[in-house]
Structures are given as C-alpha cells and as structure tokens.
Amino acid sequence: MAEALKIRVEPRDPAKNKGTGTRVVRRLRKEGRIPAVIYGHKQEVVPISLSKDDVWHMIKAASHLAELDLGGKSETVLVRDVQWDNLGREILHLDFARVSADEQIETEVKIELRGHASGVDEGGLLEHLVHTLAVKCPANAIPDSIRVDVSGVGLDQGIHVRDLKLPPNVVADADGDLLILHVVTPRSAEESTGADGADAATQPEVIKPERKEKDKED
C-alpha cells in the first residue's frame, strides 16, 4: 500500500485577484511552485500552491494519497488530475480530492511485470497491452502498483484481468476478459514477404493510354 506523502502547501487568495490568473500562475512557476486546488466532501474549493520539488517527488513515488499541511490544518487528499504542458515535460496544475481513510474510492494503478515469460524462450514476443488498471478500494488501501508474475506465460498464452492476484480489499473495475499481456509468435520474414507478394499479385494492372504520334510535317 502506498503511504500518504506529507506536503506543506500555501493558500492562494482568488477573492483579491492574487491567487488566480495567467500572471499569477507564471509568477508561481518562476518561484518553483505549482498551482493546485482542493475540493470535495461538499466543502469549498481551496486554491493552493505547492513546491515543484514536492510534486515531482510525489509523481516519481507514484503516490496516490497525500496529507497536505495548509496553515496547520491537515487535509487527506487523493491526486485526481495532473495537467501537463503540450510536450509532457512540465506539470501545470493539480487537482486534489478530499478523502477519508476508509472511504471507498475509484482510481487507476500502474501494472508492473515481474519475471521472465517462458514463451519468450520458445521464440515468442511478450506484448504488454494494458499498463494501468482501474480499481475500487478504501483510500488507505490503494496499492502502489499491481505486480504481475509472467514467468508461467507460455507461447500463445496471456493474462487477463480475471487472472490477476489483487491485494486485500482491492477490486478490479474492468472487464475480466480484458487482456493485460500475451506472448505471441512473430511472423517470419518469409511469411511477410509471401504476404506482400500475394498482395502485389492481386493489385490490378495499370494500363497507360498509348501516346499518340505527332503528325509529320510536310
């Protein structure tokens, strides 16, 4: 289970036009801070900012929960949304949703593959198709990841959602038939060439119009 990171945040004051707007956001980023909001539980939305270093630490730790210290008041929150720039390099904004420790929540958890698939030794290719899994669980039971042992996956075999061994109190919120990964037989070079040749053979022949001869001058 991922632990809630303790992060100190600062309030923003939109009522005085000092906490929102493009200029304010730019100023915050120059100061090494990122704007965010806290919402939920039928309470008011609170605009805040937090250190860029704290945000990156939270992202790298793949932490879903955070305990925010706002002027001595503690808020347990779930990271609901992270807004990135167009290049996917810089974090522009975060949304935090208030949660209780035992509150049932829905979130997505990354899938990590462990081991070496036996089918690869038989000449197969391991294809990882689904990288995150939607789950339902108490807020204090969110796993940091879903670890999948692939060592028993042979050639032309796979693992579906129904095959996953999930932690206690964690339920998959996805179709049980959803394929997470499989080991497939790669097409040989000869098969590829043959298929290409067959495709070429079925193409209609292009007949160009004959060029008219120019009349000879007398």
Rank of each mutant, 00 (worst) to 15 (best):
L50N: 06
G158W: 09
P47A: 05
V135T: 08
R33Q: 13
L129Y: 05
E90S: 14
I111Q: 03
G152C: 04
T193R: 04
V161T: 13
E75P: 00
H57M: 10
D173V: 02
E75V: 00
M1H: 11
W84V: 07
P209N: 14
P11T: 11
K30W: 02
G176V: 10
Q104F: 09
G40V: 02
D69Y: 06
G154P: 13
G21Y: 07
A97F: 11
N86K: 10
H93K: 03
Q43K: 15
A62R: 14
P11K: 13
V55K: 03
L28K: 07
E103D: 12
P11V: 10
K208C: 05
Q43C: 01
A117S: 01
E75I: 00
L92K: 14
E213F: 11
A36E: 06
R27H: 10
R8G: 07
S192P: 00
G71H: 03
I91Y: 05
V46L: 12
L65V: 04
S145K: 15
K16Q: 13
K16D: 08
D218R: 10
R89G: 09
P143S: 05
S63I: 08
A139V: 04
V25M: 10
V130A: 01
G152F: 04
A66R: 02
Y39T: 00
R211H: 04
L113P: 00
E127N: 11
A201Y: 05
V120Y: 02
L178A: 10
L126K: 00
D95W: 04
S188E: 01
W84P: 09
A4Q: 11
V82K: 03
D102P: 01
P14R: 08
V135R: 07
V148R: 05
A200K: 05
P138T: 05
A201L: 13
S63Q: 12
G152T: 04
A62Q: 10
V25P: 01
R23D: 06
V37R: 08
V148L: 05
I159P: 04
E10Q: 15
R162P: 02
P11N: 12
R12C: 09
V150Y: 02
S145D: 15
E75F: 11
A2Q: 15
K6S: 14
D121H: 08
A201S: 12
V184S: 08
G40S: 04
P209A: 15
N169D: 14
A141W: 06
V171G: 09
E127F: 04
W84A: 13
A101V: 11
G88S: 05
L125P: 06
R147L: 00
I207N: 13
H57Y: 02
R12V: 08
I105R: 01
D173M: 03
V135F: 07
L50R: 09
T76L: 15
E67Q: 14
D53P: 01
G21K: 08
E205S: 12
A61Q: 06
G123S: 05
E103I: 05
Y39D: 00
A172H: 09
Q43N: 11
W84D: 13
V120W: 01
I34K: 03
D95A: 03
D149E: 10
I7E: 03
D177Y: 06
A117C: 00
V183G: 06
I48V: 13
V99D: 07
G71E: 03
L125A: 05
G19A: 08
E90C: 03
